[in-house]
Design a protein around this nucleic acid. Sequence first.
DNA 1: CTCAAAATAGAACGTTCGTACTATTTTATG
DNA 2: CATAAAATAGTACGAACGTTCTATTTTGAG
Lengths: 219, 219
Amino acid sequence: MQESFHTVRTTIMLNADSNPKGMTKANRTRAQILDVAQRDASILGIDALTIGGLAKSCGLSKSGLNAHFGSKEALQLAVIDAAAMRFRIEVAEPALIAPPGRARLLAIMEYWIDWSQHPSRPGGCQLISAAFDFDGLQGVVRDSLNAWITQWRNGIKVCVSEANAVGNLKLEPEHTATLAFGTYMAQHIEWHLMKDETAPHRAMESWREAVGGHQRPTP
Amino acid sequence: MQESFHTVRTTIMLNADSNPKGMTKANRTRAQILDVAQRDASILGIDALTIGGLAKSCGLSKSGLNAHFGSKEALQLAVIDAAAMRFRIEVAEPALIAPPGRARLLAIMEYWIDWSQHPSRPGGCQLISAAFDFDGLQGVVRDSLNAWITQWRNGIKVCVSEANAVGNLKLEPEHTATLAFGTYMAQHIEWHLMKDETAPHRAMESWREAVGGHQRPTP
DNA sequence: CTCAAAATAGAACGTTCGTACTATTTTATG
DNA sequence: CATAAAATAGTACGAACGTTCTATTTTGAG
């Protein structure tokens, strides 16, 4: 049943050649729903989202909202995909503007921390929260979260290898990727749960030192 | 209404001088419920626990179970307290057997990681999952989680300071506590979500090096 | 402007949620 | 062993859940 929804929408978009933006009313509404859903998911968690509650947040009827996704599971997948797309735009792509090497590794952590504290995410990062929610479960939602997070972790590893090649560094990619995730998550807990305002600065300082803050210049 | 439950039970326990163990039937049942609840909470998350579902897991009726706690919120608080007590027994106290210094810091991480992978916690650490669930919310559950986690973090800081004094170390307590939490959480995600069996070993290696694996012996 | 198609609302379904109240069984004291 | 107290089961309640079906409104192509 889920495929039918996606198939229909894809067909619509491909055939909407008279609409140069490819944006039907439904597409626009769907995008607005997912914006609101991401904010709600930041506070409540992706698995605590409810169709009725989200519909109320959007000013829609329950069935009107559900028509866009077909099921709660499909809604959750859509929220995860939308969050991952935003992550790409707000974190991954800006970080890639920095030159390869230590600068890029530092940019990654800066944009990443900013992401977890952005006003549009009052409860923090929906994806990392959902990762802890779903990591003991099975199903497509868990698999989707795993895929996105693994992809990001692999991206970090690539940047670490770049930094080793370009700069004067000898960082072990696996260890450094683990350190990056750990630094991010510790900062997340300290900031959002413990309300420690020194957390982001401390996280950046640790990361800066870890990726070679004290390395000697090339002889 | 919640106080009434606790007040009654405290009175019972104090007056049960004819029962040398201080264990009424209710106390035993309550302990069994909390055992099952911790396993369920490991998989589902503390906020996804339901009274009916937990009652079925325990072989009790819904009202029979709820009589022990009075409300879902009180149940959640009880589960958190029970998990924290177990954490003390399985992680904090064993780690304190190790002598102060680097050995104790290593023991902390070893027992901590073991905790997150113990068969009685199939979905991982309930407390850290709940921390991400509740960090965007308000209320007594959030406050309780914050209190326990802050207490543990402060304990780590004390052990770091000890290690600086006893050993030949210059670890910054705040940074090292953040690193400990980060190492633990990254390992948690890698093991439980990504099913990476190399995660615990990598986490221990990183931690070992961070707490002075390469420090020079005292001259 | 027309009018089929698409988008949304409304109502209803069976289920499960948390909680309250009342029986009934079990415990443990005197 | 009797018996009050405690523990548990049973039942019921309104609310909210996800989902489905049928109107009704809105959109946008011809």
